[in-house]
Simulated assay, not measured.
Amino acid sequence: MTRVYVSAVMDATLQEAWAFLRDFGALGNYHPYFQNSTIEEGRPADQVGCVRRFEVREGGYLREQLLALSDDEHLCRYRILHIDANWKNYVAEMRLFPVTEGNRCFGQWWAEFEVPKEEEAEAIARVEGTFRTFFECVDQARRTGR
C-alpha cells in the first residue's frame, strides 16, 4: 500500500479554506490540473455518496465518491471510482485545523492506494503535486480576493 501525506500552513482562515474544501464539486473550477468538474445526477455537492467527475487537463478523467464530510471536524474523505491510471483502492482524506497565530489554517491531506511498484514514484509525485497545488490555490484566492 502506498501512502502520500502533504501538509501546509495556509494564509487563509479556517473558514476560508473550508469553503474551498467543503464544495466537493468545485475542484475543477480552480485547481489548474483539472477542469469541467460536476456532481453526477444533480445531487448536492455536500451529500455523502455523491460522485464528482472532472477532466484532467493533460487528458483523461476522474470520478470520485464523497465518503465523509464533517463541518465540525473540517474533514473530507473520498475514494476514486475511476482514474486513467493503474491505481486501486485509492482513499484520501483532508482535514483542516485553525492556527491561532496570524489567523491562518493548517491543512493535512493523505491518500492510500495500491499501484504497481514500477509506477509508484510517478504516482506519488502526481498525488503530492495535486495536494500541494490545492493549498496554493487557497493561498492565491485569499491574496486575490476570489
Rank of each mutant, 00 (worst) to 15 (best):
E16K: 03
E16H: 08
E16W: 01
E16P: 00
E16V: 04
A17N: 07
A17H: 05
W18D: 12
W18K: 04
W18P: 03
F20A: 02
F20N: 09
L21I: 14
D23P: 08
D23Y: 00
G25T: 05
G25I: 04
L27K: 02
G28A: 07
G28S: 02
Y30M: 10
Y30T: 09
H31R: 02
H31S: 12
P32K: 11
Y33D: 12
F34V: 05
F34L: 08
F34Q: 08
F34H: 02
F34N: 12
F34A: 10
F34W: 02
Q35A: 15
Q35D: 05
N36E: 14
N36K: 13
N36D: 13
S37V: 03
T38S: 12
E41N: 11
R43N: 01
A45Q: 11
D46K: 01
Q47W: 00
V48D: 04
V48C: 07
G49N: 05
G49C: 08
C50I: 02
C50H: 00
V51W: 07
R52T: 04
R53G: 00
E55I: 00
V56H: 15
V56G: 03
R57A: 13
E58H: 13
E58N: 06
E58S: 11
G59C: 02
G60E: 08
Y61D: 15
Y61L: 08
Y61M: 10
L62G: 11
E64P: 05
E64I: 02
Q65N: 06
Q65Y: 03
L66H: 04
L66Q: 09
A68L: 05
A68E: 14
A68W: 08
L69T: 00
L69D: 02
D72M: 03
E73S: 10
L75S: 05
L75M: 14
C76M: 07
R77S: 13
R77Y: 05
R77F: 07
Y78T: 04
Y78A: 00
Y78W: 05
R79Q: 11
R79A: 11
I80P: 01
I80Q: 10
L81C: 10
L81W: 01
I83C: 15
I83N: 13
I83Q: 12
D84L: 10
D84W: 05
D84P: 07
A85N: 09
A85K: 04
A85Y: 04
N86W: 00
N86Q: 14
K88S: 11
K88H: 15
N89H: 15
Y90V: 01
Y90A: 03
Y90F: 06
V91P: 13
A92T: 10
A92V: 13
A92D: 05
A92E: 14
E93S: 11
M94T: 13
M94V: 09
R95C: 12
R95S: 11
L96M: 13
L96K: 07
F97D: 06
F97Y: 14
F97N: 09
F97S: 14
F97P: 02
P98H: 06
V99Q: 13
T100D: 11
T100Q: 10
E101Q: 15
N103E: 15
N103S: 14
N103H: 04
N103L: 09
N103R: 12
R104E: 11
C105N: 09
C105R: 06
C105L: 06
